[in-house]
Design a protein around this nucleic acid. Sequence first.
DNA 1: CGGCTGATTGACAGGGCTCAAGATAAGTGG
DNA 2: CCACTTATCTTGAGCCCTGTCAATCAGCCG
Lengths: 239, 239
Amino acid sequence: MAHPLILKLSRRDRLSAEEQRALEDAIVTIREVPADQDLVSEGDRPNASTLLLEGFAARYRTLGDGKRQITSLHVSGDFVDLHSLLMKPMDHSILALTPCRVAPVPHEALRKITETFPHLTRMLWLNTLIDAAIHREWLLSTGRRTPVAHIAHLLCETFTRLQQVEQVDGMSFEFPITQAELGDILGLSTVHANRSLQQLRSEGVVTWRGATVTILDWERLRDIAEFDPTYLNLTQEPR
Amino acid sequence: MAHPLILKLSRRDRLSAEEQRALEDAIVTIREVPADQDLVSEGDRPNASTLLLEGFAARYRTLGDGKRQITSLHVSGDFVDLHSLLMKPMDHSILALTPCRVAPVPHEALRKITETFPHLTRMLWLNTLIDAAIHREWLLSTGRRTPVAHIAHLLCETFTRLQQVEQVDGMSFEFPITQAELGDILGLSTVHANRSLQQLRSEGVVTWRGATVTILDWERLRDIAEFDPTYLNLTQEPR
DNA sequence: CGGCTGATTGACAGGGCTCAAGATAAGTGG
DNA sequence: CCACTTATCTTGAGCCCTGTCAATCAGCCG
């Protein structure tokens, strides 16, 4: 089974046949998780990391008064909690935004990879480094971008990430999040998320109907967002 | 030379003598960088990663209109751009907030470590995972904490991190950042950063005179911040 | 002492939040 | 396929938070 992680990593550097096999062999079971259920919960000490095969998931943290911040979004091919191999316990939860198909990859298998496949280990490490780069970009968005630019950036980023795993259709893609969730990504209230989104739509750069987003004017969207995909490390290089 | 990175990593898991030696041997030169100068600049393709031995540094990104967001702070023992081993080019810059003593660790040496010391590699990987965990915590702060709670959290975090590398003096520590920089950390204007800080001081939980911060009431500061150090992974475990 | 940088303050405008209601869309049972 | 229920999206109004601008104060250095 050629899973989307291989697709994703292969964009950054070539994986040998052995490396691909090691990744494939690491998957022994598949689990279906319904929407709105935690894939992993804060405080867990998982003994496997979760590879997302299908669906959308979000990592989030909640404050005492119930305010929630989504700290990252995940799509197929993402290793949503690869870090739990080395960091325990979980310091945040991961929520299935849609029904998800996931593969728990036992930490034993991952540890074995780190002992035997240095290059593949670096590629997995890189995977978590890209997560961190996305976090930094989100920090810039939350702290300094206007709400409209923040949404624009989120759409550019999501489009680009989905493109890598062949989940886009022309300039359209499925983006099944509610506006309440959008607010929790942006660090804004639902109402303000709604109004900012309307502004972006009214300028004719995007369309967002139901769960499908269409980018009508990529150049303009990119300019509004000041989107520069460097941080996603999409180039193939020796790593 | 027992550098602070060894101190820092040893809090998370025991390093063997060979591993420590490998880290020590990786340092061949030391460089002094004056304050307000970039240690590394966006777009660079460094062939060494920078270990911060002394001083404070910050990673930041800037928008077209000049707005700046600081995405992380670094203190002695931090490997400020360890990620540049695998991610090129640099997607952000790193600034010396004070005069810094740094050790460039050649990527060659690091790559060799990944080929020969799987456990040490995991420890370095962990180091970058903790950076990412801090990013997530900052996202929560920027998106959902009040400015006062955000500052409180920053102080709790900084105190805890400095404690690990023995840079605190009782409940006091040196924190040489200006209020403009504080604003760029919080995602607020300088003026508002100032007013929020005053509020925290007026409640008698902290003192911040010149570059030295003193925590007068840790419990209260922790409660205001809802600070939970889990994400810093301070426990010693097999990794 | 004069000239800097950084901290503090006041006034005011605009942005973003809350509350609450109405409109749409999506899902469910008959 | 319809009627109903529920979730989501929109909109309006009013208040508070936060940004901007500009001036004053404080500390440090030559």
